[in-house]
Design a protein around this nucleic acid. Structure first.
Lengths: 257, 257
DNA sequence: CCCATCGGTTCATTATTCGAACCGCCGTTT
DNA sequence: AAACGGCGGTTCGAATAATGAACCGATGGG
C-alpha cells in the first residue's frame, strides 16, 4: 500500500465514538508498525491534519481539516445551505433526516438532524454509505452518469443485512423505480429495522452531488407514509439544489426504463 | 521530503481564490513531477480527500475532508458555537470579525464575518496566521503554555510588512501587555492598513485553543475605539469559551510580567 | 517490586517512489 | 491543413525513502 494511503487510513480511524487514540492503539488498528505509524502521524501533524493532546499524548483529528473543509465548503456550500431545510424536514416528518455527499463511488454522511422522538433512527455524521444498499445510494444512482451506475453494478455487491439487494438486476430495478418516482425507498438494506426514503441534490451540471434521506423505524413506515415522505424529500432536495445553484436545475439524465 | 508531506502540500495548494487546479499546474506549484503529483492525487482521491471534476479533469478538495472535519467538530464544536456570537460582534462593531484556531505553532482562520461597510477589512477563511505578527497570535501567546511562547520567540521572526515586530523582546512586551489587558492590539503587523484587536478562547484546561479578532481599517481605529473593541472581543471570547466548555474557565496561566 | 504497556527512537535492509521520456488528444497558430 | 504547444496520463530502470525488530525510559496496576 502506498505511504499516502497508509497515512490517510490513519485519519480514518478516528470516529465519533473514539475521537482520540494513542499511538500503539492507532498502529494496531491500522495494521502498521508503531514506528511507521508515528512517522506518518508526525508528517500529518506538521500540516495540522492531526494534533497531539499535550497532556495525554494521544492523537486526534487536527484543525487543518476544518480549514481545508471550509475552503471546499466555500465553493460548494452544501452543509450551511442544507441545514435549515433539513431541520424543517425533520420537524415536519418527526423523523431523522440526513444529508450525504457523493464522492468516489460512495456517499459520505455530512450532516444529521435527529428526530425528536424517543424511538428514532440514529445516524452518525461521518458514516460511509454504500450506493447499492441504501435509499440514498439508489436515489443517486437513478440520476447519475452512466459510468457511475455501471461501476457500482459491475462491482460485487456486498450484503450488510439479510435484506440487502445483492443481485445487480434487483438493484437496477429499484433504481429504475426511483428514476420514475423521483425518490427512492429502501427498507433494512443497510441496517436492520431502518426504513429510508431519499432524493438527489443536483449540481449545476444536472447530475447528483448528494442526497437527502428520511430515516424511520420500519414500524412507522407504511406505503402511504413512504409516499408522503418521498414527496417531501424531493421537495427538500429540490430546494437545496435551487439554493446551491441559484436557479432551478433539471436532471441531466436518469436511469432509462 | 516524505511522501505524506508532499501529498498534504498538494492539498494546501487549493485556496478560496483557486479551488480547482489542473494536474500540470498542481505539479508545477508543488515543485513535483507530474507523474508524482498524479500518483499522490490518486491516493488522496481514493480516500476522497480530493476529487476530480469528471468534465474538466481538474482536481479540487474532496468531500472526505468535510466528513473528517465534522467528526472533529463534533468533539470540539468551535465553529457552530462561535458563529452567532461572531455575527453579533460584527454587527455591533461594524467591523470584520474572524475566528482562528490554534494548531502546531500557528493560527488557522476557520470563520469570518465580514463587516457590512464598504471600506472593510477582508479576511479569507483558510488563511494561516503567524503568532508573532497578528493580534490573534499575540493574544494567544499571552495565555499559552510556556513552551508555546518559547518555541515561537526562539524561532526567527519573519517580517510581513515594514511594521512587523521582528525583535523577540518587542513581541514579548506586546504579549505582556495583552496578558495584562486580556486582549491584544496590533496594527499593520501582517497586512498593511489593517488594525486588529483579539482575545483568546480557552479550552477546558484553561489554555487557549483559538482567538476572536476584530479587524478594522487603521483609519477607523483610534485608541478609544481599540479599547472598546478590546472589551468586546474579551466578552465574545469568554462567551464562546463558556458555551464550549459548559462552564466559566479561568486562564491556566498568562505571560508573567 | 515486578511486569506489561505506554510513547518514542535507531539503523541496516528493502520496497517504494521518482521522473525523464513517452503517449494520444485537443485547441491555436501559422 | 500542417505544425505546434500544452494538456492529462503512462512507463520502467534508477534512486531514494519507508520499513520494523530491537531498544529506551517512563508510567502504572497487581
Amino acid at each position: 500500500m502506498s505511504t499516502v494511503r497508509k497515512a490517510v487510513s490513519l485519519l480514518e480511524l478516528f470516529t465519533l465514538e473514539e475521537p482520540e487514540i494513542g499511538l500503539s492503539d492507532l498502529a494496531r488498528k491500522a495494521g502498521l508498525d508503531k514506528a511507521t505509524a508515528r512517522r506518518l502521524l508526525m508528517a500529518l501533524a506538521e500540516h495540522r491534519l492531526v494534533e497531539q493532546e499535550p497532556a495525554s499524548r494521544r492523537y486526534r483529528l487536527g484543525a487543518g481539516l476544518t480549514r481545508l473543509a471550509r475552503i471546499r465548503d466555500a465553493q460548494l456550500p452544501l452543509v450551511p445551505v442544507a441545514i435549515p431545510i433539513l431541520r424543517k424536514l425533520s420537524q415536519q416528518t418527526g423523523e431523522t433526516v440526513h444529508l450525504s455527499e457523493y464522492s468516489a463511488g460512495a456517499l459520505l454522511t455530512i450532516h444529521v438532524e435527529l428526530s425528536a422522538k424517543a424511538n428514532r433512527v440514529n445516524v452518525n455524521v461521518g458514516q460511509i454509505l454504500p450506493l447499492h444498499g441504501t435509499a440514498s445510494g439508489i436515489a443517486l444512482l437513478a440520476f447519475a452518469r452512466d459510468e457511475v451506475r455501471r461501476d457500482c453494478l459491475e462491482a460485487p455487491l456486498t450484503a450488510f443485512t439479510t435484506y440487502t439487494m445483492t443481485d445487480a438486476d434487483k438493484v437496477r430495478q429499484a433504481v429504475r423505480l426511483a428514476a420514475e418516482r423521483g425518490y427512492s425507498r429502501s427498507a433494512q438494506g443497510y441496517e436492520e429495522g431502518v426504513h429510508s426514503v431519499a432524493a438527489p441534490i443536483l449540481g449545476s451540471d444536472g447530475y447528483p452531488i448528494g442526497t437527502v434521506a428520511i430515516a424511520s423505524p420500519v414500524s412507522r413506515a407504511g406505503d402511504s407514509v413512504a409516499a408522503i415522505q418521498g414527496a417531501m424529500a424531493i421537495e427538500a432536495a429540490r430546494s437545496i439544489t435551487a439554493r446551491l445553484i441559484g436557479e432551478v436545475v433539471e436532471p441531466a439524465g436518469r436511469m432509462p426504463t
